[in-house]
Design a protein around this nucleic acid. Sequence first.
DNA 1: ATTAGATGAATTTTT
DNA 2: TTCATCTAAT
Length: 656
Amino acid sequence: MVLDLSGLNDAQRGAVTAERGMHLVIAGAGTGKTRTLTYRAAWLVDQGVSPSKILLLTFTNKAASSMMTQAGGLMGPEVQGLWGGTFHSIANRLIRQDGKVVGLDTTYSILDSEDQRDLVRATVRETLGKLDHFFPAPRVLVNIFSYAFNRGCSLERSLADKVPLAVDYIEKVESVRTAYEERKRAANCLDYDDLLIYWLRLLDDKDTWAEMGRRFTEVLVDEYQDTNTAQGEIVERIAQANGKRLMVVGDDCQSIYAFRGAHYQNILGFQDRYPEAKIHRLEENYRSTKQILDLANAVILNNPGQYHKTLRPARPTHGPRPKVQPLPNGMGEAAWIARQVVDAHQAGTPLERMAILYRSHSHSTFLQADLLKRNIPYEVRSGLRFFEQAHVKDVVAFLKILQNPDDEVAWTRVLGMCPGVGPKRASKVRAWVKGEERPFEKMADGASTAVLPPSVRSTWMRFESDIADLHRAHKNKKPLGDLVRMVARGVYSEYLETKYQNPRNRLQDLDQLGILADGYKTLSAFLSELILLGELYGTDLLKGGTDDRLVLSTIHRSKGLEWDLVWVVRTSEDAFPSPMGLKDEEGEEEERRIFYVAATRARRQLIFTYPLLGQEWGGAGQGGGGSIISRPSRFLTEGKDFVERVGRTRPSRPIW
DNA sequence: ATTAGATGAATTTTT
DNA sequence: TTCATCTAAT
């Protein structure tokens, strides 16, 4: 393979062909970050490094998949050998393989955030009983635990940061965490953070640490500004083991995951920690017009602590100034944008080159309703993922108990589907399972019904026999898709029909799930990837038909992507910056970075809209809530010299 | 003793 | 739309 580097600019080429060692690439939005990183990987292979010795890490799945696609374009089939993915998915691959070294039972299940919440809820109920109203909700507790780990700080600090009103509960919160950890261990379940914890444990072990250094002679990290303390530590320990061969790429201005413990100090401090590291700067922007970059640069300048780089357009591209359009209300906003989309489409821009972005998923509801009404094909990249839909999780729960019979969360879910069985009776059956040597074999004879009252025995018996059949099919190495189909056609189908109003659509999803499952060799690989790569499915697999679809996405999930036309909705003071985000000191700066990310997604045209009437809370029903006149977002005010405001609908009222 | 159904409240961002 | 708690029914 001879790699053609002529398409790169000097700065990019410098980074790509730099001698092997420690490198920090500071790269603004649209400057070819991922390109540089994938060329680097291809260049290393060109230099004789085996692809299987290169570890490419990113923070999100989308970034990982676009990186692997690009790398595949450069190096062809050799890309197969590359170790590329998110921190969590790589962690899973490594500890499934070697977890035994650190005392892990490698048939573990992975908990998603809903599972975590359920388990925490059960733990709270059992350890604390009744609580007063101000004790943090399970969902919040999960956040607090996770934030403490990802930031590497104490639980108390985390609690004070996230829920200052609840600091007095610290002891109770601590006891819940202890009990939760214990419960996970008993159920042989790992949550997202545990995946990283066990990777760190592997690195604690001298031998596996050294082995890891030999295994990955080159480490490349994308979106480094989004790494948190734990991830930063993983990267650095591997680098210490492999003779400091590490390249990290990032943009401190695009650090938007502080709520998860990411800190752009990680990237700012890199030079201090590694004085020998070589710094590369990419400032030539290949994406946007000058008018868009001017706005982005002007707004981010209001963040004092940021590395100041000015994005320059690589080519002299000009276009219209970004526009600001106030509209009467949320529905008007949606309708106006939809009309613009239609116009642009008729003028020749494919839908897939346009996107509508928003701060929070809830801002998309009016848009979805309007697009549906007009028959405009769209794809939503926020909210529930394929895997997170209740019916998919239901079926997956059946499969999870086959892989890991100790999985309390999955058992509880399955048991809860049986009428007459709630939390209490479920725990009796779980206790029975734990006590049996071969629970599945015994279930074929209806053995577990003994612990239930007579009234529910016959119903549960049918669940039992389904589970026993599944177990047998799995032992006989039936294709994984068959297992999915067995569940979907068994007792579960009755549950599905009664529980959900749209059973037909859901059954179609389950067909897709079966097809997806057929592509995997092992149950464990299927289950892990479903959870860890969840967002990659759903949209791609399910909505057949046209490929030309408009994208609706949260700004967070839009990172790293680009479109010709971008609308950013709800850019009013009451929605963006998000009121929630302004709680602490650094909140405003983070919101400003989010705004920066949104603006720099656009290639040719950028349009901000906001509703003059504030959020309508309860929908159509109660007319109580919002008749407050909104003001445009402070970020638009900061960039007012670089935007054009159009269609003032309230001439008497000064908008700026 | 448990569960199921109803009522009232709340809502950022991701692995 | 989803979540927690209260109350009625089994």
